[in-house]
């Protein structure tokens, strides 16, 4: 009996288990090959990078499970970073609280705009969010020019460099957020609707699901999470600049796909997405420790992405054959 349960679990979580196995192999391999890898300093540096990306991919995962796409997250985050930074610089009492709220609010509005365009004007998500990717980034640059600001604020510093129970606070924030998102996806009507739309939008509509509301909510959430990720980004780098996250727009997408989300939507879990981003972060660290340059790192990231997609397609084909 137990054996059968285990088999079913393995069958239903094939892609998640696959990525996890890769993750373990890479972790053990790097630990054996490098003396520095297992030092507290190195691990916590991986974790702080993982923190802000983890929140970004949580949002990217929602829209991609729905069969959508959000390529504007990094720009929305940058807009929040710039505006939040300006608030911190005023040094009014309570500035950090306002800054944090403002960053999340800016992301939320950016996401809401995406959602409105996609569901009402009916422009495909890829086009819409490429467009807003440019627009949000441009606004960030227009607000402050190309200046960077040094952020020297106690709250942000504690967030960025403090730890609780030996674990960096950044990582705590990410983990809690990520778990909440994963629970929403699994246990709420909204989450189930997202899966339904990703599986078959037409059937979902005819089954009475409010497509427009669900889509807008999903994109808005994705934006809010991008805003929150900006808070972590600023805390970690003690800086506010309009180029935050520039050039990294595709990385969340790669992590989500590697984590087992079908490109057409409907399939995939947040736990897999978490493994996906961990794998990419770990890979980057491993390669840095091995003194490989960034271009080689990108080459490997690209390869892993393609392999993940090919594996996914093969699986889908097998299903269609039945």
């Amino acid at each position: 009996m137990k054996n059968a349960d285990l088999k079913r679990f393995a069958k239903q979580n094939k892609s998640e288990i696959g990525v996890f196995a890769l993750l373990v192999i890479l972790f053990v391999g790097t630990a054996l090959a490098s003396d520095i890898f297992l030092t507290y300093q190195n691990i916590s540096s991986i974790c702080s990078g993982l923190s802000y990306y983890g929140i970004i991919v949580a949002g990217a995962g929602i829209v991609m499970i729905m069969g959508g796409l959000d390529l504007s997250q990094m720009s929305a985050m940058a807009m929040g970073v710039v505006l939040g930074g300006q608030v911190l610089l005023t040094e009014i009492p309570g500035a950090p609280v306002y800054a944090i709220l403002l960053q999340i609010a800016v992301g939320t509005v950016c996401g809401l705009i995406n959602g409105l365009i996609i569901s009402y004007v009916k422009i495909p998500p890829m086009i819409t969010t490429i467009g807003t990717q440019y627009i949000y980034r441009a606004i960030a640059f227009i607000v402050v020019g190309s200046q960077s600001f040094w952020i020297d604020n106690k709250v942000y510093k504690t967030m960025g460099f403090g730890s609780f129970l030996g674990i960096p606070i950044l990582l705590w924030i990410m983990l809690v957020t990520f778990i909440i998102v994963a629970l929403i996806m699994r246990y709420t009507q909204f989450g189930q609707n997202v899966y339904a739309i990703g599986s078959n939008e037409q059937a979902a509509k005819l089954s009475g699901i409010n497509i427009i509301k669900t889509k807008i909510t999903a994109y808005t959430l994705s934006g809010s999470l991008a805003g929150l990720a900006g808070v972590l980004w600023m805390a970690q780098l003690s800086a506010s600049k309009p180029s935050a996250g520039q050039g990294q727009e595709m990385l969340p997408l790669a992590a989500v796909v590697i984590g087992g989300v079908a490109l057409t939507g409907g399939k995939g879990k947040h736990i897999g997405i978490m493994f996906g981003i961990m794998l990419l972060m770990l890979l980057a660290n491993t390669m840095t420790l091995m003194h490989l340059n960034t271009y080689l790192q990108q080459l490997c990231q690209g390869l892993i992405l393609i392999i993940a997609v090919v594996a996914g397609i093969k699986k889908d084909r097998r299903q269609l054959d039945i």
Binding site: Q192, Y195, A196, S199, N200, Q202, A203, A204, L206, S207, I209, G266, K267, Q319
Partner: peptide
């Protein structure tokens, strides 16, 4: 095309 989420379970489709 319109009635079912083909790649989802009997349970999910039943309560959709």
């Amino acid at each position: 095309m319109e009635g079912l989420l083909l790649d989802q379970s009997v349970r999910i489709n039943t309560t959709l």
